[in-house]
Amino acid sequence: MILIGESIHVIAKDVSNAIKERNSKVIQELAIAQAKAGADYIDLNVGPARKDPEEMMQWIVDVVQEVVDLPLSIDTMNPVAMEAGLKACKKRPLLNSASNKTESKQQMLPLAQKYDCDVVISVIADYGMPPDLDARVSSILEVVEHANNLGIPNERIWVDPIILPISTAGEGQRHAEADLEFIKILPDLLPDVKSTVGLSNVSNGIPKELRPILNQTFLVMLQRNGLYSAIADVLDEDLVRLARGEMEDITNLIYRVMDGEEIDFSSLSDKERDFVKTAEVIMGKTLYSDAWLEV
């Protein structure tokens, strides 16, 4: 599993301030911490980058490359900033991201071809988020064909089904099930493409202390279905260990839930029970609520 460290993200207040003030220390510390924790890529999410996009992107790429030797994932909606970032990277970067939106096909995808980089392509279409599995499949087939025509081979494409929060008014669980299925059938749809997800979004909006177990469990489930990489919180130690296959007991337990087994709780520790409950929620076996571990 390739892990892309998500912590340099403009939504984080200290990161957005650091970018504004060109404070390299904050950014470099986050890069180093994530590299130490086991990140394979460092994501640089600078948001829309309205002000001085080229200079800012050049700066952040440079300060991160000064301290870590990892490839970077350049994460912005601004094509000008994107190009500046891709240009500045020493190692083959990941363009994060393009989509099936017309604008993205016109402005982002050609950059992936021009700079011969890897590219995340999401299922988002001009009308927004495709509502179900079928719509996601047809959207991704459309945009990948377009990318192929531009000369971008499947091996360079990392498909993103777009994970949504599981807690959204009863709809989130349906999406989680669709994500699992999407990742499972992807090799048949598009041989040789890779895949990635914005993992932490599954736990967006729920109490902070409950986020890790949801992220961790979902990662194990997606990984079993063939997920290639995840943009994730690599500072979560257990998450990295699970991704590296170092917590076999938990992984096997989650697999048993996926296989539909009725798990006998009496033989389990509290922690194991929590993983079972979480997997059951993600499978849609039980209705989600923020109190899902208390039932």
Binding site: S167, A169, G170, G172, L287, Y288, S289, D290, A291
Partner: peptide
């Protein structure tokens, strides 16, 4: 009007 909150 939210089934998740209702259950919680």
């Amino acid at each position: 009007v939210d089934i998740n909150l209702l259950k919680e």
